[in-house]
Amino acid sequence: MNVTLSINGRDHALDIDPRTSLLDACRDHLGLTGSKKGCDHGQCGACTMLVNGRRINACLTLAVMHENDAITTVEGLGTAENLHPMQASFVEHDGYQCGYCTPGQVVSAVGMLGEIGDGWPSHVTKDIKTGTEISGDEIRERMSGNLCRCSAYPNIVDAISAAAGKTKEPA
């Protein structure tokens, strides 16, 4: 069926099987292969995209459900020549190894900082009535939906902390 998706500020008209996930629409039909498929069941976070500014698992949603949504993939954050500050911070802090979970980590981190900015609490927030601040524990909890089997976690946390305006995660 026909669907128009707005991805990274550009409209894409597609004729796809309704069964196509948003992730597969990008990877198989639009050449946007930056978002990765690690599990296809919302268990790893490699496919993370922003939909209307919020991070989601693009593997667990149908492309046809996203007409008129503003979708941002890793390609929409920055390019190799012109990196988003979060991407640059991942390079600087070695916040990756094999690189496969990385686009998902980067997009998730951007979405996650937006959530903290909006005052959203997390499982580790001490007093959820009053709000929250960026800390290592908050980042770790909130990024737990992004698996990294190479286990770059400590460097990812450093990269996000630095990009969030903190110099180094307090031990």
Binding site: T33, V74, L77, A80, A88, V91, E92, G99, P103, V106
Partner: peptide, 15 residues
Amino acid sequence: PRYEGKLKVSGTAPY
């Protein structure tokens, strides 16, 4: 920093 780092963080390193 990794030689291929910018490609990986921008999603342009092809798997």
